[in-house]
Design a protein around this nucleic acid. Structure first.
Lengths: 368, 368
DNA sequence: ACGGTGAATGTATGCGCATACAATGAGAGT
DNA sequence: ACTCTCATTGTATGCGCATACATTCACCGT
């Protein structure tokens, strides 16, 4: 590679045409006569020419790239160099039966897939960045400088910086609280989904003593779901708890710890169902309850939220609310493109429909 | 946003300095006097200035971005527009107990995480692209034009095109066959892992009649694993089958279909263990075997490869070989950076160590 | 007081391409 | 033969920044 990377000038010279023709060959081939096209094509192949994205972006005043920002999977300042592991032997070990936390990576992965898919449909590239560590500001600015627009999961970017880059590019927020007066926003119907799920527990399973197990205090998703939970209780004329029964951290491990604490303090007596803010937490509860001899759903019903695969693989299978994670990414990008085409219109807030998946963890199915 | 995006010139004028100073403020702040720095900083904030990545890339002759290429999750030419789903209601339905195929997305997601992580460590951005559909060539060229180097999963990019862009940038291949005389290459120790696993089955569980269930014919990973399998049999002085017992497609659904076929044709009599080319296939086999009343591991032992979460959640838990998927991405990027720093050295082929995870699907554990 | 030194800043240029505009040439129409 | 039209190609310019080099100026030692 390298040596001297060829440019339009090299191609033009070798093909006996002007640089404009070479440029047209790529940007608008129909405008070039076929015989000329062939000559250019041959030279391009010969020289190993690839147009410079930077030059293109500069001249065209658009990059053809959209940026995607995520909160850090792994909130750290420093990450060790990877072990190149040269020559290390294969290890063989018994794997004790502990549960693992694949956590929210999955959620993020799906969103990435969605953004990539939609971007591809429109011939755009995707640049991803995770602002983490001490230089997170730079990471974001670098991204902002290289893209035509940005979609970001809520709270991946500090507010002040978001405001700063939003002066240069359109920004679409995914999930999190709607700040609809400022940015376009896309989220799943957390509230509606939880209402529907809770209604099902109340009316179809005749459960009472429902409690909500939340995620982190500051999670807007968790808050929305708790709101939906409360709303459903209210509509059913049942007592509405002021607060969630407990707060987890959205991980399975956290859920297990939480359940043990609840069992220890006997806070589950009289509780007919636990509506959890996400699947991982619910699965953690399920682990600990099962371990303690509490039967699900016979002794207590349990539900999650997200629709991850592990919820399906659990025993009993976990009733949950499936979020359209891929669509979250796709719609965000679609909205971004709409915004690029229509800069002046008012910010939009889209709420994507969710799907309540009834499985065994909430009790036997009345019908079906 | 937009209106008129400010440039260095605007900032320089407002701050009463030259554009060189503004540029230095970003690139090399220590070279600017502190009081000047403050003035520039204020103007930058005022104006909402973000340096243009394109201009930067052009002037500096490097983009600070690396590209990552993946084969298509979903091999299609056309993908429907996403349903914006405005106002659609929440649906509630019973979810029948069928298995789902999360497939290889997971593998790819992990690799993406790895590349992002390592790139972040070095202050680089990551651009991802999935060449699919009729314009896949363009997708790749666009990517190649915008990055300083490229890592790609094997066979995501057609050979001829890979050769073309490799003249412009360093390329590192992940997984797949080593073409070590041309490109840098990183892969997991498929062969070694399968040897260790197979030896365990033979020596610790005294299993005989081992058969291999492969992936797609053209999968180099599957081939490597079959080689390891054969090698282990050979070393143990056992008969080495010429071919895998069957070929799946790496999906769980495919594995189920395959198992039913094997059962129907009674091809499992005398088979003591099925060594599968990946976890999904093994899990599919497990589904179908269990359904047919064949007990694992009592009647037949079963192993997978990859170490996905579902293998851990299966019942019995699936013995498997864990690939360091994140490290695959990390090492690939690390190697890419090394190549950028040392263009002249010979191509390297790195083999990452794997870990055999012994669980219940291969039989009771002799010790431990 | 004078040349020397180094820090801070400014000037000028080119990176590789897209594109507005000009130029050319080959028919078509008269 | 001449003008007009359209297809094709060329010329010239600027996109926004990094950076080599030049300049300025404060300060030092003698």
């Amino acid at each position: 590679m390298a040596g001297k990377v060829p440019t339009v000038y090299d191609v033009a010279e070798r093909a006996g045409v002007s640089i404009a023709t070479v440029s047209r060959y790529f940007r608008n081939p129909e405008a070039v006569r076929e015989t000329t096209r062939d000559r250019v094509r041959a030279v391009v192949r010969d020289l190993g020419y690839v147009p410079s994205g930077s030059a293109r972006g500069l001249a065209a005043r658009r990059t053809g790239t959209i940026g995607v920002c995520f909160p850090s999977f792994d909130d750290v300042d420093h990450i060790d160099p990877v072990d190149l592991g040269e020559g290390l032997p294969v290890t063989v070990r018994f794997d004790p039966s502990e549960h693992i936390d694949t956590g929210s990576n999955l959620y993020i992965s799906e969103v990435i897939r969605g953004t990539e898919l939609e971007a591809w449909r429109h011939g755009l590239a995707v640049m991803i960045a995770v602002p983490r560590g001490r230089r997170r500001h730079e990471v974001i600015d670098n991204l902002a400088g290289r893209v035509d627009g940005l979609v970001t999961l809520a709270r991946a970017v500090p507010d002040d910086q978001l405001a700063h880059i939003a002066r240069r590019l359109p920004v679409v927020l995914m999930a999190g609280p709607r700040e609809s007066d400022t940015y376009d926003h896309v989220s799943a119907d957390n509230r509606g989904g939880t209402i529907a799920l809770t209604r099902h527990l109340i009316h179809d399973h005749h459960l009472r003593g429902l409690q909500f197990v939340a995620g982190p205090m500051n999670s807007p998703d968790s808050q929305d779901r708790f709101e939906g939970f409360s709303e459903a209780l209210l509509l059913a004329g049942l007592d509405v708890p002021e607060h969630p029964l407990a707060h987890g951290d959205f991980t399975r491990t956290g859920g297990r710890a939480l359940a043990r604490r609840l069992l220890e303090r006997e806070q589950l007596t009289g509780v007919g169902a636990l509506v959890c803010a996400n699947d991982q937490t619910a699965l953690g509860l399920l682990d600990a309850l099962t371990e303690a001899g509490v039967r699900v759903p016979e002794d207590i019903a349990l539900t999650g939220f997200d629709g991850i695969e592990a919820a399906h693989l659990a025993s009993p299978r976990l009733t949950t609310v499936r979020q359209p994670m891929i669509d979250l990414g796709r719609v965000a990008v679609a909205q971004l493109l709409h915004r690029l085409a229509h800069p002046a219109t008012a910010p939009v807030s889209r709420v994507l429909p969710v799907e309540v998946l009834l499985r065994e963890s909430c009790g036997p199915h009345p019908s079906t």
